[in-house]
């Protein structure tokens, strides 16, 4: 039962990633693509959470924390590159 619900959740997250990729390919400016990148990272955090429940390994959650850090850093460096503040 729980596994079914979590599978549906996983499917929904993948659907949202597909929509985000549509915006990534469409996005008129670079900033739109950076937003898409950020949201893909955030969605991946949820994916990792669900996978770590399904595999029953708590250790996978460390990787999700690294993802949070990564999204922050990458967005900041790209934003600073764009506004010529690097």
């Amino acid at each position: 039962m729980i596994n079914t619900i979590l599978t549906i959740a996983l499917a929904l997250i993948f659907l949202s990633i597909a929509i985000i990729i549509y915006r990534f390919m469409l996005g008129p400016s670079s900033v739109d693509r950076v937003i898409s990148f950020d949201m893909m990272t955030i969605a991946s955090i949820s994916i990792i959470g669900i996978i770590s429940y399904m595999s029953d390994r708590v250790i996978y959650l460390d990787i999700a924390t690294v993802y949070g850090l990564l999204s922050f850093l990458a967005v900041i460096i790209i934003a600073k590159y764009l506004e010529k503040g690097l």
Binding site: M1, I2, I5, L6, I8, A9, L10, L12, I13, L15, S16, I17, I19, I20, Y22, R23, L26, I35, S36, M39, I42, A43, S46, G49, I50
Partner: peptide, 25 residues
């Protein structure tokens, strides 16, 4: 209790989907 948690996870993924739709619209 476990079912409740699973439903909350589902709600979270629905909100992510809304975010994605909003990104396009």
């Amino acid at each position: 209790m476990e079912l409740f948690g699973a439903l909350i996870t589902l709600l979270g993924s629905i909100i992510l989907l809304i975010a994605a739709i909003g990104l396009v619209r």
